[in-house]
Design a protein around this nucleic acid. Sequence first.
RNA 1: GGCCCCAUGGUCAAGCGGUCAAGACACCGCCCUUUCACGGCGGUAACCCGGGUUCGAUUCCCGGUGGGGUCACCA
Length: 555
Amino acid sequence: MDYNNLAELLFPHITRDPEDYEKIYPERKLPPGAKVTRLGPSPTGFIHLGNLYGAFVDERLAHQSDGVFYLRIEDTDDKRQVEGAVEAIISSLEFFGVTFDEGAALEGDKGDYGPYYQSQRAEIYQTYVKQLVQRGQAYPCFCTEEELTAIREEQERLKENPGYYGKWARHRNLTLEEIQNRMEQKMPFVIRLRSQGTHDCPEEDVRMISVEDGIRGTLTMPENDQDVVLLKANGIPTYHFAHVVDDHLMRTTHVVRGAEWLPSLPIHVELFRTLGWPLPVYCHTAQLMKMEDGNKRKLSKRKDPELSLDYYRSEGYHPKAVREYLLTILNSNYEEWRLENPDSPQEAFDFTVEKMSNSGTLFDLDKLNDISKDVLVKIPADELSEFLINWAKTYRPELIDLFAEQKEYLIKILDLGRQGDKPRKDFIFARQMFEFISYFYDDYFKTEDVYPENVSDEDAKTILSSYLESYDHRDDQVQWFDKIREIASANGYAAKPKDYKKNPELYKGHVGDVSTVIRIALMGRAMSPDIWEIQQILGEETTRDRIQKRLAAQK
RNA sequence: GGCCCCAUGGUCAAGCGGUCAAGACACCGCCCUUUCACGGCGGUAACCCGGGUUCGAUUCCCGGUGGGGUCACCA
């Protein structure tokens, strides 16, 4: 059969040569060792932690090597388009500190290797498919969905491998006339690869391929034998073909993707070879897992909405904290490095694919929270206040006035107990932060705890009225506490906890119980930072007011 | 089911032929302390099983088992 005729029949509108594109997209001029990476999300608008995890790898590899990190939108599936998804992806990633040098962007594509939307690259793909047809390496297939299903069922019945290959590839050798006939009848068709892989042979004769994975080392697997679809009936390529053409033409050096792509690697290898192009370095990352019913499983977009990036945004996790956490699970030596370099920026860490884990990592919220505490404690209070206000803008608008109108007040609150060698690490994420400091705001002040058991209501009253009587807002911390001790002694509570521990029978309790009573009156809870410091922020009026109200409520 | 990947405490993980098998989170105890946190000290807890190779296997090989992934005109 004359493949040139076939190619013309199939693609009369394609006039360019592959060589033209090689010229349009020349090799990049970059310093030696520079890596070119990319993120290729499909625009469903849903990004989860796993995507961010992978994006970090891309970002680090590129930027650590003075390379290029670009964004390519893989919108080859028209059923998966979601309005505004690209904007959501970009802004979401930007929030977490992932920025692109090139590719799809809010203000339009940037860079010389575009277009960066696969849906706009149809001609490019078709040019290469046309070439493959000319060489007899691809062919049209008119099989309907029903026929394909029938083939699969037959294969299942015979316990043979499913798929379109070898003897099952029934349109592999149609004659030109047969093809012409079907085209005249307007039968829809796809273009398939004519795979050169071995099949229908004894197991030991199957040829193997081996690929050096950046993370996993040498991978060995049977070569591809499937006549995979290259171009769908609508003329748009499948992922496999788009990946190979784009990553070649965009001069990607490192393809970072999840391990779920491992099984299709042979397809990509065959495509690269057939097209005569060098393989990029594949880096197959471990999947982020989730524990369910005692078993790990891959994070799923549909089932795990709480792992969407939006979840962390709405809870108010700081982007730095999320990055820090991801970095610790991404590179096993990161935590150690962080211990030794507590104040270095994250970018100073030398990220390597070799140190990446290749088994599935369970997402650990406890760990994220712990890391978040360490990260937040290093952020100055004024910056933290900005963060909190920004968070409130989107997620708690009713709080904005509260925060923004008294910003100095907020900063003081956030700075409470955070100086010195052993700063408090109370803050984890914005929602929790507000919960923690809510008693500073009258509208959100509420009494949650009750007095200690060993303090009678009578004593509590006495303690509070004595406190109110002796209260002097100008007292320093020592003076203030001496007064508390006096109140304790006067009412039968040990002034020093140690005395109480030695002779518990001599006292009703100790000074800690007394201050707890005051805490509950002032803060509504038994746990809080230093009372004196809080009072200084609250101001004399509010302090007296709360004690008085508590006293009144008890009558 | 075929193919592929993975396998060290509850979790994340160092290890890369000889170690009392690091460390972090979580948990427990003690100390510090006016509460809580922070901090300090200490503790419980692991090499999936079976064969090899070797003087010696957590480490190398093979086979099981277990877990995960994937088998689309989705990515």
